[in-house]
C-alpha cells in the first residue's frame, strides 16, 4: 500500500509543479514545433516524399522533445538536495522511480498528442481511421523512452556537463525504440495490414518491459547505497 502511495505522492508533486510553472511542457512543445518547421523548410516536401519522411520527422521531433523534457526531470530534485531526502526516506526506491516515470511519460504523451494534429495539418496526412493504432505506437514508444530517460536523467543530473551527457548516454541505447517506432509509424501511414508491422510494436513492448524492470531494479543503486 505504501508502495502505491509513494508513486502517487511523487506523481502528484510533479504534476502540481508542472501545473504551476508549465516549464517542461511548454519548452518541450515549442522545441518540437521548431524541429518540425525546420524540417519542412529543409526538405521541399511534395505529398509523396512527405509520406516517406513523415515517420522519421515525427520521431526525430519527439526524440528531441524527450531529451529536453526528460533531461530536466530530476533538476528539481537536486535543487534543495531532494535526492538526498529520497534516499533517507523509508520508501521503496522502485516506487520513487515509477512515480517519476509516470510523470515523465504523461508529460511526453501530452506534448505528443498536442503535436500530432499539427503534423496532420502541416503534412496533409489522411489518418482519421488510423488514430487508435498511432496512439498505441506513441504510448509504447513513449513508455520505453521515458523508462530509459528517467533512469539516465537521475544518473546525469548531478554532473557538470548534464545537458551534453544526457543525450550522449540516452540516444545510443534508445536506438531500438527509434527503429521500432519509425517502422511501425511508416507501416500505419502507408496503409499496410497490421501483421506487416505488428512485429515492430512487439519489439517496442518487449523493450518497454525489459527496461522498466531493469531500471526499477538499478534505481535502488542510484538512490541507495
Amino acid at each position: 500500500m505504501h508502495f502505491f502511495n509513494v508513486i502517487r505522492w511523487i506523481a502528484w508533486k510533479d504534476l502540481l509543479s508542472e501545473l504551476r510553472n508549465r516549464e517542461n511542457i511548454s519548452s518541450m512543445f515549442f522545441f518540437a514545433l521548431i524541429v518540425i518547421l525546420i524540417f519542412s523548410f529543409s526538405f521541399s516536401l511534395d505529398p509523396k516524399t512527405s509520406q516517406e519522411l513523415m515517420p522519421g520527422i515525427i520521431w526525430i521531433a519527439f526524440g528531441f522533445t524527450g531529451i529536453i523534457g526528460l533531461g530536466k526531470s530530476f533538476l528539481a530534485e537536486v535543487h534543495n538536495d531532494c535526492m538526498e531526502y529520497f534516499q533517507i526516506v523509508p520508501a521503496p526506491k522502485g516506487a520513487i522511480y515509477l512515480g517519476k516515470f509516470a510523470g515523465n511519460a504523461l508529460f511526453m504523451l501530452i506534448v505528443e498528442v498536442i503535436l500530432f494534429p499539427l503534423f496532420i495539418l502541416f503534412f496533409n496526412l489522411d489518418v482519421l481511421e488510423k488514430i487508435p493504432m498511432i496512439l498505441l505506437i506513441f504510448v509504447a514508444a513513449t513508455i520505453g523512452l521515458s523508462a530509459l530517460g528517467t533512469l539516465f536523467s537521475a544518473l546525469t543530473v548531478q554532473i557538470r556537463a548534464r545537458e551534453v551527457m544526457f543525450p550522449i548516454l540516452l540516444l545510443p541505447l534508445a536506438v531500438p525504440i527509434f527503429i521500432g517506432a519509425v517502422e511501425a509509424t511508416r507501416g500505419v501511414f502507408s496503409g499496410d495490414p497490421l501483421p506487416l508491422y505488428s512485429d515492430w510494436i512487439k519489439l517496442l513492448v518487449v523493450f518497454d518491459l525489459i527496461f522498466m524492470v531493469v531500471s526499477f531494479w538499478v534505481f535502488e543503486f542510484i538512490l541507495d547505497y
Binding site: N21, A76, N80, E84, V89
Partner: peptide, 25 residues
C-alpha cells in the same frame, strides 16, 4: 535536518510538508 532543505520551489510550505511526510507514510 541537514544543509539541504528538501523543499520544492513551486509547492507551498503546506504542500511541501504534506509531500515530505506522505513519502514517509
Amino acid at each position: 535536518i541537514s544543509h539541504g532543505s528538501y523543499l520544492y520551489d513551486d509547492l507551498s510550505v503546506l504542500e511541501n510538508i504534506r509531500f515530505a511526510i506522505g513519502l514517509r507514510g
